[in-house]
Nucleic acid binder design. Sequence first.
DNA 1: GTCTATAATTCGATAGAC
DNA 2: GTCTATCGAATTATAGAC
Lengths: 187, 187
Amino acid sequence: MTERTRRSDATRAAILAAARERFARDGYDRATIRAIAADAGIDPAMVMRYYGSKDKLFALAAEFDLRLPDFAEVPDTELGAAVVDFFIHRWESDETLVVLLRAAVTNESAADRMRTIFGAQVVPVLMKRGIDPSEVTARAALAGTQMLGVALCRYVLQMPPVVAMTAEELIAWLAPTIQRYLTHPAP
Amino acid sequence: MTERTRRSDATRAAILAAARERFARDGYDRATIRAIAADAGIDPAMVMRYYGSKDKLFALAAEFDLRLPDFAEVPDTELGAAVVDFFIHRWESDETLVVLLRAAVTNESAADRMRTIFGAQVVPVLMKRGIDPSEVTARAALAGTQMLGVALCRYVLQMPPVVAMTAEELIAWLAPTIQRYLTHPAP
DNA sequence: GTCTATAATTCGATAGAC
DNA sequence: GTCTATCGAATTATAGAC
């Protein structure tokens, strides 16, 4: 309400934005509070004051909702393309997923959140599509290996051929893979 | 030759084995020289004496040769299955690849080595199979996203459904994917 | 609200005794 | 060859002045 309040809100937001970028680029360990504060143009002590600890700051920086649509009006034959399209564009526009992926490799709580997201958000959507409940977990996991593998190679390891491809090229290549994992008979 | 020499060799090997395990489990940053020395049952100073620095120790712990066969007698229709079979069993039996993968996420030199391995070892093998040279890099990269994604989910993130699958189940699911990335017409 | 100063750890690396 | 002792740097986190 007052100017003080407004500025503190802006500072909070600046800290969180800087934290997201640092965590995305450097991972949990190498992203220091000092660096985050420097990026936000404030004192490191302010980060502690606003967020309590590095852990709590990370928890908020890595907080996000997949916002996975239910693909209700997508024909069965195009489910793979729709899923790939959603994930690729989601990844391109929101670095939070990269934050989480990078941290999950060395941070157990981040890894746990990664596991939860796929178990709690992806599986139910596929259930609604009428995929055999006894197979849906394995199918979602297989699709997860491909989508996370792309994210790893494109955004984290930055392998040149994967970075060079356009989003549309990637989608065209990956769609049949996901389609098969989700809908084709088990081998 | 003498007993002193033999024991120092054994100590060197013990350090390297402990380092590989720690790097595989904890990544580069969190794997401390102190912890590695404790695992090996020796003094931390010995690690420095034998390997000079943490960087050099890691370089040796992450050193490995893919030993990718040339798949000369594999029929074209079974190339995907052969490649997947090789990688899965390679991963199951040698944790060095996990060492490298885990470190590559936060360590630039490890990421560079990862990129080099796929560019310098995988691509030439596919070239010999007669894959269109103008497409072979992209095809190898796509296969890389799927194989690294599996390694990430199974060995690093340890997603329950992926861990639960047997190597043979995994191979059966993944083989058609790799087959398509390597040999089918581009979309 | 913001910053200075510093406490408390932890780490890689070194020096030197034995 | 092995270990003790320790340095110097970097980190998170806290206490308190302004």
